[in-house]
Design a protein around this nucleic acid. Structure first.
Lengths: 340, 340
DNA sequence: ACGCATCGTCGATGCGCATCGATAACTCAC
DNA sequence: GTGAGTTATCGATGCGCATCGACGATGCGT
């Protein structure tokens, strides 16, 4: 492996000059710049990350703490992961995987060993045990998810409250008077991720202001549970029933239960689920969705941490960013009675 | 951040002694070892990864190249990723994410900058464009998947041929004379990942030796396509039909199509799918599965590369390891007529 | 023509650690 | 009690780069 010294020698300049050509931190004449760049090409020189980190005190690596999650969720986690990794590259950073198995000590390890310049934590719980550690780390950390006490923390997430409002608003506009909201699957609820609460609060708020009724019913992937929820909803509904299933795995089971009850989405019942546009279109009946914008949340998380890394941590920062959600009508919901 | 020099000072020894205590590469008296270890505790010292990498020429980081994959596959990718990350920790290594978006240049980048000591490539295609680059890298690389020409490469994968044989063997033992195999979804087939071919070759081999007939039919997630495949299979089958759907996403669609044809797995039809035991048990009718052992493949991949890193790359290595698959009977397949 | 900025480059230094050779402190045999 | 062999520790060095101060070269005004 060639070093910057080799490049300097080949170009007939000092090693420091090579360094300045690369960093641009001092003016370099066009002539020597060219000589150096040619030498770099010739030798296919690439700077050594370890040496660079040692000298500059920057690794250009961001630690990504991924959750251990029941299998059913992995697809959505993976979307975050891959968008985060790709976005990090745009800022000339790399992503180091830190699994939740390592817990809080894992955070201290990667930060303490200075493997990473900062961290992104996914799937932050309302009362996450790692928060005290996060606050004590002297590197930027961005949380995806909003803990109960976000003071002194930098958080970002989809605006679940807005999502809840949008769903109820649209179903109400389509003429539904009773709207049933299926909860997330128990594995999620048990984690006390507070986006569940935020979503529910959004549905209630909208229900109140629009004068419709919202039923909260158990969710999950257990067909019996969903069947029971559906039957209860049908019993309490006058007019055409409406369901909101913000958890992708729940909506899957819901679809089958509705079909077994002889109900066709878009005709006898309205259903709003959560899925990417691609996936939503692929359904037998294209699914109206509330898009929680995982890719956008990921991109912004990376941007936030990279900005923090640029400006160097000047004292403790605190911020909270909510990404607007998007509701999309497709064939699984009734159309509003009068146009628009 | 304390340095080893600080530790040395606190313990009243030389910095090099601290280093030897940590590495164990020279004998240290019990007395000084204790002094040093106490000082490390006191200062919560953690060695600086960059400096360590620079001096030792080992980063203790493994690059993991994750595929860009249509959304439906992400769940299974994620299982590999998380097991790989956790296993790497057992060998005191970390995982750096390299996305496929960076392509072959990405491999050269992370190796050239010496961010990684080695690489694991997932989802290697039969004629993967990255293979020439892989062969030219002077670091250990483990491929998950078997390319057409594995010479000079270290590969590991599930034994898909064995998997195909097991499926046909078991269905034949249950009395089926015509067995339909649904292909993977087009996104996979188009990649020319050669596990598809290996699986099919396994089914054919078993069919020939057992004297049963195997039909190969188009797969995918398009309900129309699957419906057509099913109808064709039914038309060509005498006796109870049998289906093998080794692609998890295909089996999902298959289940619904069979149900729409009034066929109940385990009674009127046999179905073998692919899913984790947990997921298989969760199905309305527990699914007989062929387990492709993703976790075991992941673990072994990490072990292989870590072993290679230990022994230092002494000349080019070449190896090919196939992980035995496991077939499990559950309620979705007929029982063999006479006991066991 | 002379001082004075400005620009471009060089040399030296240090980041924190691993590692090598040297050496002091012992042990043991004679 | 002296030399050979151990054992435990130290000091010095270098890994490859970023960065700082210094300095020669150049251009400007007077």
């Amino acid at each position: 492996m060639p070093t910057s010294k080799d490049v300097a020698q080949a170009a007939g300049v000092a090693q420091s000059t090579v360094s300045y050509v690369l960093s641009g931190k001092r003016p370099i004449s066009e002539k020597t710049r060219k000589k150096v760049e040619d030498a770099i090409q010739q030798l296919t020189y690439q700077p050594n990350a370890g040496a660079r980190a040692l000298a500059s005190r920057r690794t250009r690596v961001i630690g990504l703490v991924i959750p251990f999650i029941p299998e059913l969720h992995m697809a959505s986690i993976m979307e975050f992961v891959s968008v985060i990794a790709n976005t990090a590259r745009l800022y000339d950073h790399d992503i180091l995987l830190v699994t939740e198995d390592e817990g809080a000590p894992g955070l201290q390890r990667v930060v303490g060993q200075q493997i990473c310049d900062g961290l992104i934590l996914m799937q932050v719980e309302g009362d996450d045990e790692r928060l005290p550690v996060v606050r004590s780390l002297h590197v930027p950390v961005v949380l995806i998810g909003i803990p109960h006490d976000p003071s002194g923390l930098v958080c970002i997430d989809a605006d679940f409250e807005m999502a809840g409002e949008q769903c109820v608003h649209d179903l109400a506009a389509a003429g539904h008077e009773v709207i049933s909201v299926l909860d997330w699957q128990p594995e999620v609820v048990d984690r006390h991720v507070n986006y569940v609460e935020r979503f529910m609060s959004g549905t209630d708020k909208a229900a109140q202001s629009l004068g419709v009724k919202v039923l909260h019913l158990p969710g999950g992937t257990d067909r019996e549970v969903i069947a029971e929820s559906v039957d209860k909803a049908l019993a309490e509904t006058t007019g055409v029933p409406a369901f909101i299933a913000p958890d992708g795995t729940v909506q899957d089971v819901l679809r089958r239960v509705l079909s077994s009850r002889g109900l066709t989405p878009g005709t006898d019942v309205s259903v709003i689920g959560s899925a990417s546009p691609t996936l939503a279109e692929l359904q037998p009946i294209p699914l109206s969705t509330i898009d929680l914008r995982p890719a956008e949340v990921s991109r912004r998380a990376v941007k936030i941490i990279c900005d923090l890394l640029e400006t160097e941590n000047q004292g403790p920062t605190e911020s909270l960013e909510l990404v607007p959600t998007v509701i999309t009508h497709r064939a699984s919901t009734l159309r509003p009675p009068h146009g628009s």
